[in-house]
Design a protein around this nucleic acid. Structure first.
Lengths: 210, 210
DNA sequence: GTCTATAAACTGATAGAC
DNA sequence: GTCTATCAGTTTATAGAC
């Protein structure tokens, strides 16, 4: 997960690399790293295969560049949970932001899902360091809320596992959801229903009863 | 998803096929169908590669047999939700059963996750017919509960998507959970905490406030 | 920068000896 | 039933013409 800070690229390089990463995202989302073929990425990108290996030195290079790109995009899109806000406001914002991300970039979510199911060979280091310390910090805020009686007394870590699971399922298991709903596509109306159900269940679920 | 009812097999065939399917479950869980190699399955099973293709006619045959096996196992392990019981009792039973299945057979859960993320080419038909009609029936029970004011008014379908996502995350994203918790393994103590958190959040989340 | 040709290694599956 | 040998097709990656 080391950055590539010193590499200077021309305009066309930046453009083509972005085109290839975009195509790779769709291919890796469907077959994972090991199951994906360069020729499929090249077809998806509308480029000859050898052109792909001109812009990236290997299949692994494409994959790790993609993972890094997704990671940076996600970190930018989702903010922290601030201690000063009301728990319900802060959590709602977080959940809605994650649901929007699932809707906006479902293939990125699928690439991550496959990567983690495969044992996180590429992003494992990030999970164990940056993500872990981020969750540790958020957990402190949760504990403060719990001491004030604002949310129920459950492990904050598992609250995050629940939120992640639920919000990402609408990207990762889109196929299943479509087939069970009998809908050709997960339209905006159904997606709104999903956001409503998810936020209601989790927020209500975390709120104590007197 | 058609059964193979008429095929008679000797004892050794049954035994070796089970051994191979067990090995294949671990391999497919890690790399998905397209990313898995017969040689890896053979190593995992402790058999020479050509022996694998003596007991199964192709890689696809292994995979679809495995999917069918998992499906039957799951249908047997998890019962329906009965209308007559209290919603909280019925739902708690269902959630705990799903959590136990995730703990007991995590690789099976991962195979399914990868299959669905890949667009469900093999189990798609099952999802669109059997699973869909099962959920349709359960949804009616939910609607009855909602009319009596026993659970909150959200789409029953999304309640299932939430429950599935949360219970399966402890199998599928086990790697991430371990790394974030900083634990070498998801021990029984932590798993109990997970079951507690998940059931509390969902049951509390579905219970109306007067 | 782009594309054809091809090397070098691998993969699913089969044939046939034991 | 088990195992070695091997075929035919594929895959990543490189060399070199344009």
């Amino acid at each position: 997960m080391q950055g590539s800070p010193e590499i200077s690229r021309s305009k066309i390089q930046i453009k083509k690399r972005a085109l290839i990463l975009n195509a790779a995202e769709r291919v890796f989302a469907r077959h994972g790293f090991a199951g994906s073929r360069l020729i499929e990425i090249s077809k998806e990108a509308g480029l000859p295969k050898s052109n792909i290996l001109y812009y990236f030195k290997s299949k692994e290079d494409i994959y790790s560049s993609l993972c890094q790109d997704i990671l940076e995009n996600w970190l930018g899109a989702i903010g922290d949970i601030s201690e000063n806000s009301e728990p319900s406001d802060a959590l709602k914002k977080y959940i809605v932001a994650k649901m929007e991300l699932s809707k906006k970039r479902p293939f990125a979510s699928k690439v991550f899902a496959m990567e983690i199911i495969s044992g996180a060979p590429v992003i494992g280091d990030y999970l164990a360091t940056e993500l872990r310390s981020w969750v540790d910090n958020q957990a402190k805020i949760f504990r403060a809320w719990q001491e004030r009686g604002h949310i129920i007394d459950v492990s904050p870590y598992h609250v995050f596992f629940v939120i992640w699971a639920v919000t990402q399922t609408y990207a990762d298991f889109e196929t299943q959801i479509k087939l069970v709903l009998g809908d050709g596509h997960l339209g905006s109306r159904e997606y709104d229903r999903a956001v409503k159900a998810v936020t209601e269940i989790i927020l209500n679920g975390l709120t104590p009863r007197k």
